[in-house]
Amino acid sequence: MEIIKLTTPLTAEKVANLKTGDKVLISGVIYTGRDAAHKRMVEQVAKGEKLPFEMEGQIIYYVGPTPTKPGYAFGSGGPTTSYRMDAYTPPLLDLGLKGMIGKGKREPAVIESMKKNGAVYFGAIGGAAALIGKCVKKAEIVAFEDLDSEAVRRLEVEDFPVTVIIDTKGNNLYEIGPAAYLKTV
């Protein structure tokens, strides 16, 4: 299968070309955020405050990395389970967020919002944290430092391997993949 090289920030065109099941290597800047950071960002949106970064065209990676060892750019950092961010996701998609990297199922409301706003949901390999950590060339905290591992970080990544799980049309690899496999047995 052909591997698609994708550079951030994302645009409506770049995102529309991605299809469920595509293997993608992401390079450029992405931002981290998980439970506590999402709660705060959505509170900021509600209060009309400035967010840690402009959402337009960006990708959020759901991760809480391990502390960085001396001599390394980043710790171990595989994806966390995405459904816990579901309640906070549609307001960020409405602000132009174009991609999310995580693992696991999403709520129908998130998928509807992705279709409406033209966004994709990528899956990174859950548990492959040492391997994925190697793709991060630079990391810095840009907000909520008190949250430690859960702080929002700006990452510069090179060839970060992901698979498109849900595309802009709402096709879902968690339904399509197992069904296609079961037809072969």
Partner: peptide, 15 residues
């Protein structure tokens, strides 16, 4: 991933 974690003394998973 498990081979990298073991050879470089890195946590195999961030959790």
């Amino acid at each position: 991933n498990y081979e990298i974690a073991a050879s470089e003394n890195l946590p195999m998973c961030q959790d």
